[in-house]
Design a binder for these strands. Structure first.
Lengths: 126, 126
DNA sequence: GTAGTATTAGGATTCATTACTAATAAACAA
DNA sequence: TTGTTTATTAGTAATGAATCCTAATACTAC
C-alpha cells in the first residue's frame, strides 16, 4: 500500500501547478525550496510511483531528458528548437490514423505519439 | 576536409545494408567483426560526422537509446512494445497538419515526428 | 616521399537514472 | 498511547549511453 508522504505530495502539487513540463532536475530544484534535504533519488522514485498510480505521465521528446506532466487525455506536443520549451497542442489526436496504418501493415497499433518542432512565440521575435 | 577511412566506410556500408535501425552499440558489434579493434568513440564520432554529411539520420524514439538509419525522405516509425523492433511506415507525412497547427497556434512549425507503438507481426502471434 | 591535418584507439569523464542500505516515519491495531 | 509493520527516505554508490582527451596513426595533397 502507498503511504502518503510530504515529499510525494510536494512533487505532485508542483506538477499540478505548472504547464512547464519540467525535467526531474527542475522538479528537484523546485521541491527543494520546500524540503531542502530531499534527495534526487526520492524525486525519481516518486515520479515513477506517481506514474504507476496514473496521476502523471512521462514525456520523452526527441533526444532530450525525460519531462513530466499531470496525466491528461492523449495529446500532441511542441518543442521549441531554440529554447527547448515544451507546449501542449490542442489539435485532436487522429485515432483513425492508427486504424488505417494497422489495416495497411498488419501491425497491431496501440497508439502513436507526435511531436512538432519549430520556434515558439518568444523565439520567433528576435 | 573529411578523409576517407575504413572505419567510417564500414559503418556507412553496414547501415546501407540493413533495415534494422541499429543502436550505436549494435553498429559497434557489427563493425568490430571487420575491424576488431575499432573503438566505440570512433563509432559515435563517425555517426555524428555522417549525420553532418547528410548521409544518415539519428532516431530518438520514446525513451530508448539513439538508433540510426540511412537518410531518407521524412517518414514515420513504428516500435514494437514487446521486442523493441523498429520499422519504417509508408504512410505519407502530413505536411498539412503542420500548416494547420501553425495557423491555429501562431507557432512556427518546421516539421513533426510521429511514432506508432504496438505489436509487430512476430509478437502478435504468441 | 614529405608535410599537414583529420582521424584513430583507448581510456577518462560526464550526466541522467537506478540501485543499495541503514535510518525514519506512515499506518494501523492493541 | 504505544508498539509493530512496512513503505519511504536521505545519501551514496553504481550503471550506462554518450562525450571528451591525447598521443599515435594514416589519409590527402603537393
Amino acid at each position: 500500500m502507498n503511504k502518503h508522504t510530504k515529499q510525494r505530495e510536494a512533487i505532485l502539487r508542483f506538477l499540478r501547478g505548472t504547464y512547464s513540463h519540467p525535467t526531474a532536475d527542475q522538479i528537484y530544484d523546485e521541491v527543494r525550496k520546500e524540503i531542502p534535504n530531499i534527495s534526487k533519488g526520492t524525486v525519481y522514485r516518486n515520479l515513477k510511483v506517481l506514474q504507476e498510480m496514473g496521476l502523471i505521465s512521462e514525456l520523452n521528446l526527441n533526444g532530450t531528458v525525460s519531462r513530466f506532466e499531470v496525466k491528461q487525455e492523449s495529446h500532441y506536443h511542441f518543442r521549441c528548437e531554440k529554447c527547448g520549451r515544451v507546449l501542449d497542442i490542442g489539435e485532436p489526436v487522429d485515432k483513425e490514423l492508427d486504424r488505417r496504418v494497422a489495416l495497411r501493415t498488419g501491425l497491431k497499433i496501440h497508439h502513436h505519439q507526435l511531436e512538432f518542432q519549430g520556434l515558439c512565440h518568444d523565439c520567433q521575435h528576435e
